[in-house]
Simulated assay, not measured.
Amino acid sequence: MTRIALWVLIGCLTAAVYASEQIPEHDLSADQIVEKNIAARGGLDAWRNIQTMVWVGHVDSANTPAEEMPFALALKRPNKTRFEVTVLSHRAVRVFNGKQGWKVSPSATGGGEARPYTMDELSSAHDEQVIDGLLIDHQAKGVDVTLDGIDKVDGHDAYRLGVKLPSGVTRHVWVDAQSFLDVKYDRVARGPRGPVTVEVKYGDYRSVDGLQIPFTIESGAAAAGKGDKLMIDKVTLNPPLDDGMFTKPGSQGRRNSVSVNADASSPALSRPGP
Results as ranks from 00 to 15, higher is better:
residue 79 N to I: 12
residue 80 K to W: 02
residue 81 T to I: 13
residue 83 F to V: 11
residue 84 E to K: 00
residue 85 V to F: 03
residue 87 V to N: 00
residue 87 V to C: 02
residue 90 H to T: 15
residue 92 A to W: 08
residue 96 F to H: 11
residue 97 N to K: 06
residue 98 G to T: 06
residue 102 W to A: 09
residue 105 S to H: 13
residue 111 G to T: 15
residue 112 G to D: 01
residue 113 E to Y: 07
residue 113 E to D: 03
residue 115 R to W: 13
residue 117 Y to S: 11
residue 119 M to C: 12
residue 123 S to V: 06
residue 127 D to C: 03
residue 130 V to S: 00
residue 132 D to Q: 04
residue 134 L to I: 09
residue 135 L to D: 09
residue 136 I to D: 00
residue 136 I to N: 00
residue 137 D to N: 01
residue 140 A to E: 08
residue 141 K to G: 09
residue 143 V to I: 11
residue 143 V to L: 04
residue 144 D to Y: 12
residue 146 T to W: 11
residue 146 T to V: 13
residue 148 D to V: 08
residue 149 G to R: 14
residue 150 I to M: 10
residue 150 I to P: 05
residue 152 K to D: 01
residue 154 D to Y: 14
residue 154 D to T: 14
residue 155 G to M: 07
residue 156 H to P: 04
residue 161 L to V: 02
residue 162 G to Y: 10
residue 163 V to K: 05
residue 164 K to T: 12
residue 171 R to F: 05
residue 178 Q to E: 13
residue 178 Q to A: 14
residue 180 F to M: 13
residue 181 L to A: 11
residue 183 V to S: 02
residue 183 V to T: 03
residue 183 V to C: 01
residue 184 K to L: 11
residue 185 Y to H: 02
residue 185 Y to N: 00
residue 186 D to T: 10
residue 187 R to I: 03
residue 188 V to K: 08
residue 189 A to E: 09
residue 191 G to A: 00
